[in-house]
Write a protein that binds this DNA or RNA. Structure first.
Lengths: 140, 140
DNA sequence: ATATGTGCAAAGGGTTTGCAGATAT
DNA sequence: ATATCTGCAAACCCTTTGCACATAT
């Protein structure tokens, strides 16, 4: 659990309770949609407005505090910024899990983009499939 | 240029002019948003409805004729189904280019998911950055 | 003290839906 | 001939915006 207040202030954003609670929920869950964030934080802040959540998501993505994870056929989820990693997206339950980004893959992709004269800024690897838990549930 | 009529009939979809023109536009362009598809096809079919485009996109994605390419901060684009490949997404002009999927990467990802007991269905590698053309324009 | 942020309500835009007429098979 | 598809218009979100009040610094 990080120092959310410091994280926000570094970007010139005020450390409001709304924002800190949003970050805490997101970090705890890992990856959340905007609705899920609102549902979670409104429990603590009954006066929270969905508009505030939208505004803050945009601000925090623009400032690099959050990362958007676009997902096929669904709404984007958001996660705290961290070093490159791979997403395992379960097509059954919708859960997203992180896995360490692998050096072999990384170097291959850098070589590819370098030879293309493509100025690589960010990579996003999403693997879609059925997670262990959902496989077991189907079996039972 | 494929046989769009056959492609559609294989899925049990009727080969209408609207659908075939959509597929032709998408294949020609490579990757298109829904709006772009509508703008292109309505030139040929002035009576085309945006609702028809939406309905057909959903149908063709569900039937595996099209693939959705979700993109950070933007609306999804759609491409014809083809074997796995990498997307280079230009953050300046928004263009998406395909690159062959690399065997090294592929085997690493399969190893990873296998060891996780994650039943891999589909992989999606998006590399965001500035394409060659946009780099040159900034320079000039 | 003041620039920012929040909440509300309204506006805006994208997407979906229902239905009657048209079309592919 | 008939199941499917299209186009239209309305409905339905989700998301954004403007503004007055509240809050962090």
């Amino acid at each position: 659990m990080r120092d959310y207040a410091a994280l926000l202030k570094e970007c010139g954003l005020k450390a409001t309770f709304q924002r800190m609670n949003m970050l805490e929920s997101i970090e705890k869950s890992g990856h959340m949609s905007i609705d899920a964030i609102y549902d979670e934080v409104v429990k603590i802040h009954p006066s929270l407005s969905l508009a505030t959540v939208y505004k803050n998501i945009i601000l925090m993505v623009d400032n690099g505090v959050l990362i958007e994870v676009p997902i096929e056929g669904k709404k984007s989820k958001y996660e705290l910024s961290k070093e490159d990693h791979i997403h395992l997206v379960c097509t059954e339950c919708g859960e997203v899990e992180d896995r360490p980004h692998m050096k072999e893959t990384d170097s291959v992709l850098h070589t590819l983009t370098h030879s293309e004269h493509f100025k690589l800024e960010k990579q996003q690897i999403n693997l879609y499939g059925v997670c262990r838990k959902c496989q077991m549930e189907v079996a039972s």
